[in-house]
Design a protein around this nucleic acid. Structure first.
Lengths: 237, 237
DNA sequence: ACGTTGAGTGCACAGACGTTCACTGAGTTC
DNA sequence: GAACTCAGTGAACGTCTGTGCACTCAACGT
C-alpha cells in the first residue's frame, strides 16, 4: 500500500491510443484530485487534510496541485459544487417519481436511500463539512441547503391548502423536512449494512408523522400546545 | 497576541497565597487544557488540532500535555464527557420547568436557547465532532445521544396514550425530536445575534407541527399517505 | 516546421509536528 | 528534615508540512 490508490490513470487507460488533449488530461487530473480528497477525508475532515497527502494519493508531486487549486479550501469549494450536483440529481429523481408512485413518502425515502448509497462520498462530504469544514466551505454548503429549502417550500405550496398554510409556515415546514433528511442521511451513512433498512423505515414513519401534523395544521391557530396534556381523555376506543 | 490566551493561571490567581495542593494544580491545568481546546477548535475541528497548538494556548510545554492525556483523541473523549454534563443539565432544566409553565413547547425551546448560549462551546463541540471528530469521539457522542433518545422516549410514553402509541413509534418520535433539537442547536450556534430569535420561533413552530401530528397519530394505521394529495377538498371554510 | 504554453517534475527551504529523554523543584509522606 | 513523587521544563530527534524556483517536454497555435 505505497503507490497511489486513487491515482490519475498513468498512460493509455482506454480508448486505443488517442494522444489525449491537453484539456482532457487536466480535467482527468482535476477529477482524480477530487476523488482522492473525498476518499481521504471520509474519516476525519477537510481541515485535517494536507496538500501532500492528497498529492501522494493522486500520484502527482505536491507542487502540481497548484495547477488545479490555489489551496485545500479552494478544493473544498469545488467539492461543494460537485456534491450538490449529486444532491440536486436526487431531488430531480424525487420529483420525477412522485406522481407515478402512489405513496410519495415511500418513494421519496427510497430515492434518498439509493442516491445516498451510490453517491455516498458526496453526501458524506456535505454532512461532515457542513459543520466542520473551513469557514468558506461551511458557508457555501449552508447557502446551497438554504436554496434547497426554498425550492422545497414552493413544492409544498402546491401540495397544501393556501387557506391554511402561510408562506412563513411553509418555509418552517420545509426547513424541518430538510433537517430530517439530513439526519436520515447521516444515519444511513454511519450505519452498518444490516441496520440500514431500520433507519429507512424510521425515516418513512417520521415523514408520515410530520404530514399527519401538516394535514391538521392551521397557520392562524397557535396549534395544540394547551391540548397536549389532556390527551388521554380525548378520543379513546 | 503571542502569550497564552486560555492560560493556566500563572501564580496566586486569588484566595490569599495558600500554597495550592498538588491535586488542585493538576486539575486546574487539566481544565485549562480542555477550555483551550474548546476555544481552538471552535472553527475547524479536533482532528485539525495539534498537541503543540493546545500546549501553547494553555501556556505549558508540549510534553507536559502527556501528564494529563495520552493523545488528542483521549482529550476528545474527556471533552465528550464534559459536554454531555452540560447537555444533561439542560435536559434536567427542561423537565423541571415543564409542569410549572403552561406551554411545554415554549418553555422547552427557551431552556434550550439559554443553555446553548451559556454553554455554547460544549454544544458546538458535540454538534461538530459528532460527524467530524476522531472515530472514537464520534462513537462516544452517538452513544450518548442514543441514551438521551431512550430517556426522551420514556418521557413521551408518559404524555401519550399507550393505546395509540407503540413503543417503537415512541422511539421514532423521540429520534425525530432529538434530530430537530440538534438542528436547532446548530442553527442557533451559527446564527448572527439578530437572527437567533427567528430560529427559536421556527423551532417552536416545528415542535408544534410535530405534536399536532402526535395527537392524531395511531400506531396501527399506516397514516395519511394516501390522503395527502386530496387535501384541498377535505375541510375548508 | 517552430516557437509558445502549461501540466507535471525535482530540489530545497524554514517551520511545525509528535515523541524521547534527562532534568528541576515544589508539594507530600514518612 | 530527609526521602520521594510527579507536574512541568527544555533540548533534541526524525518526519511531515506549505511553498518557491528552475526545469522538462508533449500538446498547441501559428
Amino acid at each position: 500500500m505505497d503507490r497511489p490508490a486513487v491515482a490519475v490513470a498513468r498512460a493509455g487507460s482506454r480508448a486505443a491510443d488517442r494522444p489525449e488533449t491537453r484539456g482532457e488530461r487536466k480535467e482527468r487530473t482535476r477529477q482524480a484530485i477530487m476523488d482522492a480528497t473525498l476518499a481521504l477525508c471520509e474519516d476525519s475532515s477537510l481541515v485535517a487534510l494536507s496538500l501532500r497527502q492528497v498529492a501522494k494519493e493522486v500520484g502527482i508531486v505536491p507542487t502540481a496541485f497548484y495547477r488545479h487549486f490555489a489551496s485545500i479550501e479552494d478544493l473544498g469549494l469545488a467539492l461543494v459544487e460537485d456534491s450538490f450536483v449529486s444532491l440536486r440529481a436526487m431531488l430531480r429523481d424525487v420529483r420525477r417519481t412522485d406522481p407515478d408512485y402512489g405513496d410519495i413518502i415511500d418513494s421519496s425515502i427510497t430515492v434518498l436511500e439509493e442516491h445516498v448509497r451510490s453517491r455516498h462520498s458526496h453526501f458524506a462530504f456535505i454532512a461532515r463539512e457542513r459543520s466542520a469544514g473551513p469557514p468558506a466551505v461551511r458557508a457555501a454548503i449552508r447557502h446551497q441547503i438554504e436554496l434547497v429549502e426554498r425550492e422545497l417550500a414552493t413544492d409544498l405550496a402546491r401540495l397544501t391548502d393556501p387557506a391554511y398554510w402561510s408562506t412563513e409556515d411553509l418555509a418552517v415546514l420545509s426547513n424541518m423536512i430538510v433537517t430530517l433528511a439530513v439526519g436520515t442521511t447521516e444515519a444511513i451513512l454511519s450505519a452498518r449494512h444490516d441496520g440500514e433498512q431500520a433507519i429507512v423505515e424510521q425515516a418513512r414513519t417520521q415523514l408520515r408523522m410530520v404530514l399527519v401534523g401538516a394535514l391538521r395544521w392551521r397557520s392562524d391557530e397557535r396549534a395544540p400546545t394547551d391540548r397536549v396534556e389532556p390527551v388521554e381523555p380525548a378520543e379513546r376506543g
